[in-house]
Amino acid sequence: MTESVLRLDHFNFFIGENQILNDINLKFQRKKVTAIMGPSGCGKTSMIRCINRMNEWVKNARVEGEILFYGKNLFQMDPILLRRKIGMVFQRPNPFPTMSIFENVIAGYLLNGIKLSKTDKERIVEDSLRKAALWDEVKDGIHRKGTFLSGGQQQRLCIARALAMNPRLLLLDEPTSALDPKATSHIEELIIELKKTVTIVLVTHNIAQASRVSDFTAFLYLGELVEYGETTKMFTVPEDKRTEEYLTGKFG
């Protein structure tokens, strides 16, 4: 059996009076892609935001239960250290407009004030950009502003930025929702390539995308975990009626 990197244990999440997530129990497998799927408003984005404790910036947010990261309750860890071990990529590409491509990749180091030697910097930038399949496209203009890139390239830059910190877990929050089909397929290929080295949690509302890139899928509906299992299995013989309805496009 593969080791679990991350485990949600009777996890509940509230914003004010509203319960957003209801008693979630879920294990994420190492070096696999787990897709979290569900209609909008089902709590999938809230869930991955809790994983790197970005929920703490939401007003009146409250959690119950535990999320275990390598066996330790992550709500007892320092959020800053935690976030450095967990990379996150957002719905819209958000490179820092004041920084060059080069600086964007090592932004995690620069902003945290972590000193790197020049050769380390260059190595990390090249490695991360290669992993994000962007190196060949930008190597000649590496000191240009990151905002000059196309949307798809910007998103890969954001992936490189997350990878540069050497995360053990990568959270992707609908990373292709703002991209065109060609850029989307680029990112999807990249996700499959990346799971060789890192555990990935992918939030998506795109059923086809989940089936193309994920090994496991969790289906969330109205804050509840309806079904979880291997993607191939869930897509062919879903156990729950709601899953089946969602997959066949009856709602969502």
């Binding site: 790197n52 970005m54 910036w57 800053i80 250290l81 935690l82 976030r83 450095r84 071990k85 967990i86 990379g87 996150m88 957002f90 719905q91 819209r92 958000n94 490179p95 820092f96 407009p97 004041t98 932004a107 995690g108 620069l110 902003l111 945290n112 004030g113 954001c158 930025r161 997350a162 910190m165």
Partner: peptide, 25 residues
């Protein structure tokens, strides 16, 4: 907001996020 989030998600403390990302932007 996403720019601030990007920085926070990299494990950058809030005060550095304001001083090094938000204000320069």
């Amino acid at each position: 907001m996403s720019l601030k989030e990007a920085s926070l998600a990299l494990g950058v403390p809030y005060y550095k996020t304001i001083l090094k990302v938000v204000i320069p932007t």
